[in-house]
Design a protein around this nucleic acid. Structure first.
Lengths: 332, 332
DNA sequence: CTGAAAGCGCTAACAG
DNA sequence: CTGTTAGCGCTTTCAG
């Protein structure tokens, strides 16, 4: 590897001068600048990022903490994050946590050792200690898609209460009264918020909530399938379900279909996210569309702002979800 | 940030000793080791990775070059890669190239500046120069899912010729003779190989190949949709199509359905990959399943082996795809 | 405008 | 067993 010394020698200048032209520093005679740049080109030289990082304390590397990159929702989110980060000249290290606090903590420690410049955090369960430590550890953090209680951090979110409200209302407007909620653990903020929106509609409509209609800790297609089984073997089964996300919704539909129920005639199902998958299911899924890619992009805009020192107080960007009606919901 | 000097001072030893206990080096009295470790714990100290990297030349960071993390296939691949990398103590920087050579080159330069320890490369078009430069640049490379011509590199692949052969044969066995191929650019090795397998069956079966039945440069759902339109407006349309991947297959199905054709009665469609999406489409997709997650995992096994100096000559791991019959294919 | 020199935080000989 | 010291490749004063 050629170093700054090699360039300096060949250009008959000191390494300080090379460093100056490298960083477009002022105070270099145009002629000298030219000469140095030629040598740089000739040797196809580029500075060792480790050394730069060691002195300048900037790594141009960001961390992205998410539950699972194989999940289409987070895949698209990650794409938005990476594209925008790349635009600003940053790389992103990806970390899959499966929502496991110990995994989060491990990654957090690792990332802080690597001196990342900032972190996008989309993986938290409420009350995780790990992140609290990190916020003291030096680098800025932007929360993405999931909030953390009691932590006043910058965030890019979707109005989950509102979205769940719209989703549930859609079902009510269709004439449904027996509406189930199949969602994630209530430890997850977005899950709690969606429950809130769901309950709000029921309450407004004077619909009595039935405990058996709320199923928790459902985060995958398989779990959605099982939830459908539970729901449909009830003596008084629901006629519609609000699912935590598209995958869960698909699981619910699959489960119902396997039991011989028809979607949407026997059971209306509404999902969340509008991932790529939602439009091609059988039947196509009605869902609350989130601006997934943009959320990732915005999170980086804010994070890079923080890194550059544009504080301006904690900012929270809350986007609205949009109801996309397809064919998995129908009048009761 | 506390440094090795702080620890040394507090433990009344030299930084060399601290370094030794940090790296489990030999030749440290047990008692001293204990004391140092206590101080380390007390200060919650962990070494600055930049500094370590600068001296030891190891960053414990890998690069992953893929077309698009939002594509479920690459999402799952990436998950396999990241999980296994994490297991070995490495982080992975993700790079989305969209199959654009200039993006690949940019990332490659960046990654090499960052002194990554190794690279998993799943993004190449044939004949890209960028990667050729990189292989000289110092770090080991493992090709994943896509091969590069004229470059004798370690690789983890699927037998695409064989897989396409099985897929096409499945259609022939079902009685189809008018079989179309909707695939990616022939610049992509996997696309070429699949064409090869496809043509082999036709040739063996004495089926005359019709140029209009082969559509190229199709890599997305949208493009698949357009391909279906082209195919089905032919005066003599095919009764079956082999698609490049699940997304393309879904696009073909969507396109056909929009034109009023029934799947599979009017058109049998077979995909590739068996991504999570394949089982939930309308109808569920017959596809050639690839061991996606494992491929990513194996690639890291090999890459870490290379990093640790276990050369042993170039190794190529070729896995077999498996036919998964669902409901998008039916007898002619 | 340019160069010398002091670190950044750590590893790895080399002495003791 | 432990400490001293010379770098790793670069940025950044401070002189000139």
């Amino acid at each position: 590897m050629t170093t700054i010394y090699d360039i300096a020698r060949r250009a008959n200048v000191s390494i300080a001068t090379v460093s100056r032209v490298l960083n477009n520093g002022p105070g270099v005679k145009e002629e000298t600048r030219q000469r140095v740049q030629e040598v740089i080109k000739e040797f196809n030289y580029s500075p060792n990022v480790m050394a730069v990082a060691l002195t300048s304390k900037k790594t141009y590397t960001l961390g992205l903490l998410i539950p699972d990159i194989a999940n289409p929702f987070f895949g698209e989110l990650a794409r938005g994050v990476e594209d925008r980060a790349n635009y600003y000249g940053f790389n992103v290290i990806i970390c899959n946590t499966d929502n496991k606090p110990h995994k989060e903590s491990d990654y957090l420690r690792l990332l802080s050792q690597k001196r990342i410049d900032g972190l996008v955090y989309a993986a938290a369960e409420t009350g995780n200690q790990g992140i609290k430590e990190v916020t003291r550890k030096g680098f800025p953090v932007v929360l993405l898609a999931r909030e953390i209680d009691g932590l006043n951090l910058d965030a890019v979110l979707v109005d989950n209460v509102g979205a769940a409200y719209v989703a549930t209302k859609h079902l009510v407007d269709l004439g449904h009264r027996k509406i189930a909620l199949v969602t994630e653990s209530l430890k997850i903020q977005s899950s709690r918020d969606r429950q809130k929106g769901y309950l709000k509609v029921l309450s407004e409509e004077g619909i009595v909530t039935i405990p058996e209609y709320q199923i928790f800790n459902v985060g995958s297609m398989m779990a959605g399938k099982e939830a459908a089984t539970k729901l449909l073997t009830l003596t008084n089964p629901p006629s519609a379900v609000v699912a935590f996300n598209d995958m869960v919704a698909i699981g619910v539909m699959e489960g119902a279909k396997e039991m011989g129920f028809k979607i949407p005639q026997d059971l209306s199902v509404i999902g969340f996210d509008d991932t790529i998958i939602a439009s091609v299911t059988d039947p196509p899924l009605t869902t609350m569309a989130q601006p997934i890619y943009q959320m990732g992009s915005y999170a980086i805009d804010r994070l890079v702002g923080l890194i550059k020192g544009e504080g301006g107080g904690v900012k929270r960007l809350v986007l609205e979800a949009r109801l996309v009606v397809r064919r998995s919901t129908t009048p009761a």
